[in-house]
Simulated scan of single mutants.
Amino acid sequence: MGDRGSKTGDAAGDVAGDAASSAARGATARESGGPPVRAVLASVWPGLLLVLVGVVGFVLLLDAVRDQEDLWRLDDPLLAWMVAHRTPVATSVLTVVTNVFGPFVLPVLVAVGCVVWARRTRTWWEPGLLAGAMVLATLVSTVLKAVIARPRPPEVSMVVAGVERSFSFPSGHTIGAATLLLVGGYLVWHRHHDARVLAVWTVASVLVIGTVALSRLYLGYHFLTDVLAGLSLAVAVLGVVVAVSRVHDLVVSRAEAPAGVGR
């Protein structure tokens, strides 16, 4: 009788031990499979918020253009004012600006900059994110231009008539400059977390993006809503980069954490 009770107890213990081992293996598998969904969501929400802000801003501008209301009402008067107040010096300076951030010079500058950055930091992660963001911005801008098909301002308003052959909405120059400044600045700040870097990034972004947008208006190649749409899309692209960067940080921190820590 005692032997049978002992065997029954041993069997129950074995079953409980097997269940505990299975549970432990399941927990380990879940942990090794990557960060939990809750942690990922908590990490990426700033990026998702930026994407939402950028997309909503773009949609509102597109709606204004299609319905010919709100900010669209400023497009023609502002363009006419810019044309009426041109000066030789300003025209020369802003022509250089618009050429530097155009589709021929800017990609070369970005490519060279990314290679130099990667060699100095000995990592391709941040330079690769910047290059990917620039490609994404270009693709989004190109596709949306073709789909929306908004005509350019009248050629009589352009400094050099006929030089721009693509559609007008959104401004490719603006999205390119804004993506470069916003994403590049974020990645540098993300690496150093220095208040001085943040201050320089903010000032440089405002000045450079504003100057490029002004050049497109002043030279007669875009309307106000075009450049604002380009900026909105750049904010959305920044949001994508922020989300990807933060998920990468989460994965790396979990991989580098000692066994048992944070579990």
Rank of each mutant, 00 (worst) to 15 (best):
V89N: 10
L74D: 13
V96N: 10
P170I: 00
L106R: 02
W72A: 10
A118C: 12
V183Y: 05
V108P: 02
H173P: 05
L182V: 00
P77W: 08
S171M: 10
L182K: 03
G184H: 03
G113I: 03
A149R: 08
R122A: 15
V110L: 10
V115M: 10
F169H: 02
A146M: 11
S168Y: 07
L79V: 05
V112P: 00
V100F: 02
S171R: 06
V147D: 09
A131R: 02
L60E: 09
V83K: 13
V55N: 06
Y186I: 02
Y186C: 04
L144M: 12
T179H: 03
V112W: 05
P127N: 08
A80I: 08
A80K: 15
L144S: 04
L180W: 00
P127R: 02
A111Q: 06
R119F: 14
V53A: 12
A118F: 06
V160F: 12
A137C: 07
L48S: 13
F58W: 04
V140P: 02
G172T: 04
R86Y: 02
S168C: 10
W189D: 04
D75K: 07
L49N: 14
I148D: 04
L181Y: 06
S92E: 14
M82H: 09
R122C: 11
A177G: 09
R120L: 14
P127W: 08
G113R: 03
E69T: 15
D67C: 06
D67V: 12
R165D: 12
P103F: 08
G102D: 00
W81E: 14
L48F: 14
V51W: 05
V159D: 06
F167E: 09
L182R: 03
G162C: 07
H85A: 10
I175F: 06
P127Y: 00
G176W: 05
A131P: 08
V160G: 04
L136C: 05
V160T: 15
F169S: 05
V112D: 06
A161M: 08
V89M: 11
P103S: 15
W124M: 13
A80E: 15
G172W: 05
L79D: 04
V97I: 15
E69L: 11
P170G: 10
D76Q: 13
G54V: 01
L139D: 11
H173E: 07
N99M: 11
H173I: 02
G162K: 05
L50S: 04
R120D: 11
R120I: 13
R152K: 12
L136R: 04
V156M: 11
A118R: 07
T123L: 03
A64N: 08
A178I: 00
T123S: 15
L136Q: 03
A178N: 04
V140R: 01
G57N: 09
D70C: 09
V83L: 12
P107A: 08
L109P: 07
Q68H: 13
V56Q: 01
G184M: 02
M134A: 14
V100Y: 00
L74V: 12
A178P: 01
L182T: 00
L71G: 02
F101L: 05
L74Q: 14
Y186W: 12
M82S: 10
F104D: 13
L144I: 15
P107V: 04
F104N: 13
L61N: 00
V89C: 08
A111C: 11
L182I: 01
H85M: 10
A133W: 04
M82F: 14
P88G: 00
L187M: 08
L144T: 10
L94Q: 07
S157T: 15
A133I: 01
L181D: 07
L60N: 08
A111V: 15
